Every structure is written in structure tokens, then in C-alpha cells.
Simulated scan of single mutants.
Amino acid sequence: MNLEKIIASTSHSFLPVYLILLFLISCNQQENQKNNEPSERTKSISSTDDIDLNLPAMYTGTLPCADCPGINYQLILEDDGFTELSQYRDRSPAKFEETGSWSANKDTLTLVGQEDLILKRFLFHKDSLTLLDRNNQKINGDLADMYVLERVGNQESIRKHHQKLSEQGFIFFAAGNEPFWSIKIDSLNLMTYEKPGSTRNLGEVSRSMIENGILFETSADSIQLSIRVQDKYCRDSMSGYLFPETVTAVMQSSQVDTLRGCGLFLEN
């Protein structure tokens, strides 16, 4: 067989194979292009939308519960991780706490717990998060609105206020609403009590340990003040800010007033 016959024979036998390869390459390119396209959920949020965590941030809501009225849920996001707090309504007042790391990819926030276990995924919206199901899809039905967490504002300004108090030498701060009041204790163990239009220095404070907390006591002029600080999370009724301590202050003068609010020990 001469060279021309060999080439002719070979070209005829390879032609179908060549066409098949072209077809497979074309299909693969189309599949890759399809996989690289954003999902329908991602398309609903364009790159120009204002989605900014602006940490620290806190989101709150009431998640559905199979055998209770609901679960009070709070998610606190910070640069170095998250804190998740859950409390079952009409049950024990104790809060269940979970901590870990988080990551954000396009429109999805993922919470990662111990041993790199994925705990939850949320869909970003402006000023809110929506809890996704195990297949990373939105949950529909009559209870769909209960899976939406609203962002609580004023977090950054409140933290800056606490930082300023710390720089001024205060070691403890507590406040409450309706009536509005605040208490500050400085590094010299001196207490200041404030309410709208009035500031009083109440002198040196004594402290003693109580169950699950600390008791501060002081007296000045005709006022006696005792402050019970319990190691239990407290949400401010106006700002929604989550404090680490629950505070009950009993003030005795011409009458007895009980003030309730939230507090924290300031870092110096």
C-alpha cells in the first residue's frame, strides 16, 4: 500500500472520532458556562445592592417551634466569630449559647460551629437575614415570615459610647428605660447615678458576691442604693442592644423605687 492510500484510509476512519470529540468539547463548554451562571437566588441580589455587614451586627427574631410558641433567637456577628442565643418561650428562661466562626459568599452567610460543623445558612437581604433549609433554599409556607431576622440598629454607636466610658476610667455601666436612668462606677469604686436633668455622686461602693452575680451597695445623704448584677443576657428595650448582665437596682429614700435594666463591666 502506497502512502496516498494510507493517508486516505486513515482520514476516513478518524473522521467520525474527530466529529465526536468536537461534539463533546462543545457540550462541556456549554455545561461549564451554565454552572458559572448565578443561581436564581443570587440573581435576585445584584452586585450593586447595598449589602454591608458593618460589624459588629446583631439580628433578632422568633423562629418556629414544634411544641412551643416560638424560639427567641439572637445572632451577634463580630470580626472574629459569632454568638448565637436561643431561648424557648414558655419554658425555662435559660438561654442556649453557641459560638463559632462565619463566612460570607455572595448572598449567603454560613455559621460554622465546633469541629467545622455547619450550623445554619442565611440569605442576605438589606437589614435582614433569612434562614435557609438544609438544601440552602428559602422556606415557604404560612410560617415563612418567622424565618426572617431583623437587624438591630445603633450597635456601633453604643459600643463607641462604652469605649469612651472605659477611657474615662469607668469600670461598670448600667442603664434602664421608662424611667430613664444610668449608673456608673469608676476605678476608684465611686458611683454616679443619673436620670434626666439630674446627676448625683453617691460615694464609695461596697461589693459582695451573690448567687450568679455581684451585689453593689452604697449610701449618700438620705439615699441607699443596692444593685444586683446577674450574669444573664439582657436586651435593651429601646435599642435592642444585647448586654451581658441583667441589673436590678433598689433605691430607698422617701420611698422605695425598683429600677430594672442592663449592664456590663467595661474593659480598661
Score class of each variant (00 low, 15 high):
Asn177Leu: 14
Ser92Thr: 15
Met58Glu: 11
Ser9Phe: 09
Ser44Phe: 00
Thr199Lys: 12
Asn177Thr: 14
Ala175Pro: 04
Pro38Glu: 01
Leu266Ala: 00
Asn177Ile: 12
Ser92Trp: 07
His162Gly: 05
Leu55Ala: 06
Thr42Pro: 05
Asp52Glu: 11
Arg200Tyr: 10
Phe14His: 00
His12Leu: 13
Leu188Gly: 11
Leu190Gln: 11
Lys95Leu: 13
Ser237Gly: 10
Leu202Asn: 02
Asp90Tyr: 14
Leu123Cys: 08
Gln163Ala: 12
Cys68Gln: 06
Thr258Gly: 08
Glu156Gly: 13
Asp107Gly: 06
Glu211Trp: 06
Leu132Lys: 06
Ser47Val: 00
Gly153Ile: 14
Trp102Val: 03
Leu123Asn: 05
Lys126His: 12
Ser101Thr: 15
Phe265Ala: 05
Met238Asp: 14
Leu19His: 06
Leu3Glu: 12
Arg260Gln: 13
Asn135Met: 14
Lys164Cys: 04
Ser13Met: 06
Glu78Met: 11
Phe14Ser: 04
Leu19Met: 07
Tyr59Cys: 07
Ile118Lys: 12
Ser206Thr: 15
Gln30Tyr: 09
Leu109Lys: 01
Ala175Arg: 14
Ser206Pro: 08
Ser253Tyr: 06
Glu31Ser: 11
Gln74Arg: 14
Gly61Lys: 02
Ser166Pro: 02
Glu156Thr: 14
Met209Ile: 15
Lys43Met: 04
Pro244Phe: 00
Leu3Met: 13
Leu109His: 02
Val250Cys: 09
Ile71Lys: 06
Tyr59Phe: 15
Asp52Phe: 07
Leu24Asp: 03
Lys95Arg: 12
Gln33Ser: 14
Ala66Pro: 10
Val17Phe: 03
Arg134Cys: 13
Arg89Ile: 15
Ile210Gln: 04
Val148Tyr: 09
Gln114Lys: 14
Trp102Arg: 05
Tyr241Ile: 11
Asp127Gly: 10
Met191Glu: 01
Glu167His: 05
Leu188Trp: 05
Asn212Tyr: 04
Thr199Ile: 11
Asp221Thr: 07
Asp257Asn: 13
Met146Gly: 06
Asn135Gly: 11
Glu84Lys: 10
